[in-house]
Computed example of a mutant assay.
Amino acid sequence: MTDSRFQVRIEPAGITFTVSPAETLLEAALSAGVDFPHRCRQGVCTSCVCRLKSGEVRYDEPSPLSPADIEQKFVYGCQAFADSDLVLHHPFIRP
């Protein structure tokens, strides 16, 4: 069994890193040396929230997303797992 890895691109910084389906976006970003904002790692503080530009993510149940989060395409990096290649927007991540 091979470990599928997906590519994640963070805009507008243009940073890319890979993530396995078993690790959160935050875990993968930090492992790749990306200065990804975070504090609580529980989906509460919203420091890691990005906007989904393309791709698909999933969450363990219960999902931290409210109906408003879903409508605005918010992604909680500390809780989200990639199900495809992703393009995310986070204005405070810098190269």
Rank of each mutant, 00 (worst) to 15 (best):
S47K: 13
E61C: 05
Y76R: 11
S63G: 06
D3P: 07
I10N: 00
S31F: 10
V49N: 09
F6M: 05
A29G: 07
V87H: 01
L88N: 08
H38F: 10
S66M: 11
S47E: 15
I93W: 03
P64K: 03
C45N: 06
G55S: 06
G43R: 12
K73M: 12
H38G: 02
P91H: 11
C78P: 00
C48M: 07
V49A: 09
Q7G: 12
V87Y: 06
D3Y: 11
A28T: 04
V44E: 14
A13R: 04
G33I: 03
G77S: 09
D85S: 05
G14T: 06
T46M: 12
E56V: 14
K73S: 15
T2D: 15
R5M: 13
G43Y: 05
V57K: 00
P12A: 05
F36R: 08
G33Y: 10
E23I: 05
K73Q: 14
C48L: 07
P37W: 14
F92V: 11
P37T: 06
S31E: 15
C50L: 07
A80G: 00
L25Y: 07
P64M: 09
R9S: 12
R51L: 10
A82E: 02
T16Q: 15
P67D: 14
V19F: 00
F17I: 08
H89A: 14
